[in-house]
Design a protein around this nucleic acid. Structure first.
Length: 586
RNA sequence: GGGGAAGUAGCUCAGCGGAUAGAGCUGCGGUUUUCUAAACCGUAGGUCGCGGGUUCGAGUCCCGCUUUCCCCGCCA
């Protein structure tokens, strides 16, 4: 018999499907519906027989039994049984479990073993994407953090990922800002760190002015059209603004460990939107309405009336124009099979309209249609449950927020680990503080709004980054104490069974890692992985408390070191996939 | 007015049509001559917004009602 693969869930899924194909009770529509099981039921369970029998009007228990018998006739690694209404429960033998652990206890052993529907596909992940002329504030956190995690998931699953920061550098804000710069005569004669604040203030003042005064709005729109038509003065100003903005973004990215393959802002597509206008009119999708070029979708209950405006009545492009050009560019020039957009949920309509339009457009031109995914996320709320703001009602600057997280982490570490050197404390504080901010964001379902509370994210109880990082540090401490390099543990075990329930419970949890990753990837939701890592750390802590690793018996110690090594690998790999750094000491 | 998301323990949240709805915080009670107690163990806490329906089975799907948030033609 071959050694068991890394992804036991998908292995069982495939095996059951194959076996079912040889049995008269099943047809090709049967989906075993495999998932990790609670330990009291086994290690994995297949619930699919129930749904299948409902559809086929068959007795689920007897059908499950035939599948169970056929499976156990050819596979001795699992004890399989029929339970309840017709569940199939699979419990790995200790021997098979230990065999799996020996094969997959280190991250380098995972490489190439985790596959998904995105494997071997080229995928553009569009995330962060701030607007220039403003500094990043708390509202920019989620796209950056969630997008970074998702692109790492996709990459780990064997996809060829292109990270694209689609910066908003060509929109209406420039009309407002250019008008305000000209009105005030701002000359950029200050350091970039100061200039970025000035520009922000100018934008805010200008933005208010356009709301109060229709004439100012008109002026701003004209400045934007001039820019988009290549006016030299406006273009030079635009370049200055962007240069200053990029520098302020880069400082944040560096700190957060975020890098991009491309930074193709909206402006990159400025000479490509004309072709979009022509193409969509040529294939009859776009028409002029109230002076603007729009796309309606007659078959859609809402978008038959709600237009997708691809060119404004003043001739200026908007983000629909550039987004359409962007899809074409990514598909044709970057050869992307799929695109994932990580933006806030308010843009759901926009992306639904964009995807519908692309589908029809590409169909009409007989071009391959890329898979398009929107991964929307909810708002960041303050402690009062309302959109987070400073006391003055302004957005909280991202760099200030990160500084505060790190400062709070530093205070805590100074109190808890006074023996660390100042340098070590600073490093730990940086990892813990930034990790706490990232993890707080990732650990909640991205679709819901989440409450930003320093006190909750920088604590060591519950589903937090510090709790997970602490578990990692404790495992490192065991290897330090044993004088064993964690990457060189003995895997030639003499034991072929677990000695304690807690050992087995830990192994049970470790097996589920690939299934959880698959779920997180399928839904493009990092919180599934967070929840899993938290549970794993919890099971480990129980084991750590109950079973002493460094024991007098060599065989027991080797088994437990193997479990520690596997737990360490999973926690570290998982945290790295989430975009967090890990520590050996804290 | 139309549409979307949401309403689960006092609070913050998990819960892929499946098995007795779970965590953490808070409360109460324990555990350290032992690998990091920043931990662990125990206990308490629920009309899953309300009312119907589909199903062998509904927190999960459908319909109605209700509350909150968000979006709805030239912002992104």
């Amino acid at each position: 018999m071959n050694a068991l693969p890394f992804s036991l869930g998908s292995y069982l899924q495939k095996t059951l499907k194959n076996i079912a194909a040889t049995l008269p009770s099943f047809d090709a529509t049967f989906d075993p519906d495999l998932r990790p099981a609670e330990e009291r039921f086994g290690d994995f369970q297949a619930n699919g027989v129930l749904a299948y029998c409902k559809k086929m009007r068959q007795n689920p228990r007897s059908v499950a039994q035939t599948l169970c018998d056929a499976f156990s006739a050819q596979n001795k690694d699992f004890d399989v049984s029929v339970a309840g209404a017709g569940f199939l429960n699979f419990k790995l033998t200790d021997r098979a479990m230990l065999g799996w652990l020996r094969r997959f206890h280190a991250p380098e052993q995972y490489e190439g073993h985790f596959r998904s529907v995105f494997s071997d596909k080229t995928i553009v992940v569009d995330y962060s994407s701030p607007n220039t002329a403003k500094r990043m504030h708390v509202g920019h956190l989620r796209s950056m953090v969630i997008g970074e995690a998702l692109q790492r998931f996709l990459r780990f699953g064997g996809a060829s990922v292109i990270r694209d920061n689609h910066i908003g550098d060509w929109g209406t804000q420039f009309g407002i800002l250019l008008a305000e710069i000209k009105r005030t005569g701002y000359d950029f004669n200050e350091a970039p760190e100061v200039a970025v604040e000035t520009l922000e203030a100018l934008y805010q003042a200008g933005s208010q002015r356009t709301k109060d005064d229709p004439q100012a709005l008109g002026t701003a729109r004209k400045e934007l059209v001039k820019l988009q038509q290549g006016d030299a003065e406006n273009f030079a100003l635009w370049e200055k603004i962007n240069k200053i903005s990029y520098a302020s973004f880069e400082a944040i990215y560096q700190r957060m460990g975020v890098t991009f393959d491309y930074v193709l802002g909206e402006s990159f597509y400025r000479d490509k939107v004309e072709a979009v206008y022509n193409a969509l009119q040529a294939c009859g999708l776009a028409k002029t309405d109230q002076g603007a070029l729009v796309v309606f979708h007659p078959e859609h209950p809402r978008f038959c009336k709600q237009p997708f405006i691809i060119r404004k009545s003043d001739g200026a492009s908007n983000y629909a124009s550039t987004d359409l050009a962007t899809v074409a560019y990514r598909s044709e020039q970057l050869h992307a099979d799929a695109m994932v957009y990580v933006t806030d949920a308010r843009q759901c309509d926009h992306f639904e309209q964009l995807f519908l339009t692309v589908k029809k457009w590409f169909e009409a031109e007989k071009k391959p249609i890329p898979m398009l995914f929107h991964a929307p996320f909810g708002m960041v709320l303050g402690q009062d449950g309302k959109a987070i703001k400073t006391r003055e009602g302004k957005p909280i600057q991202l760099h200030q927020l990160l500084n505060e997280a790190v400062a709070r982490a530093y205070d805590l570490i100074s109190a808890k680990s006074p023996d660390l050197s100042t340098e070590e404390k600073r490093h730990v504080a940086e990892v813990v503080g930034l990790g706490a901010v990232k993890y707080a964001d990732l650990s909640q379902d991205r679709m819901s709004n989440y409450r930003f509370e320093f006190d909750k994210m920088i604590r060591f109880e519950g589903n937090t980054a510090p709790y997970l990082l602490y578990a990692v540090a404790r495992i490192h401490a065991i290897f330090r104490k044993a004088g064993i390099d964690a990457t060189h543990i003995a895997d030639d075990l003499s034991l072929d069974a677990f000695a304690t329930e807690t050992e087995r419970a830990l192994a049970h949890k470790l097996l589920a890692f690939p299934s959880i990753l698959a779920l997180a990837l399928q839904e493009l939701k990092p919180h599934h992985l967070c929840r899993y890592l938290y549970e794993l750390a919890g099971v480990f802590s129980t084991f750590y408390n109950a079973d002493k690793v460094l024991s007098e018996k060599t065989d027991v110690q080797n088994l437990r070191l193997l479990l520690c090594r596997a737990t360490l690998a999973t926690l570290e790999k998982g945290l790295h996939l989430l975009g967090l750094e890990t520590l050996e000491k804290m």
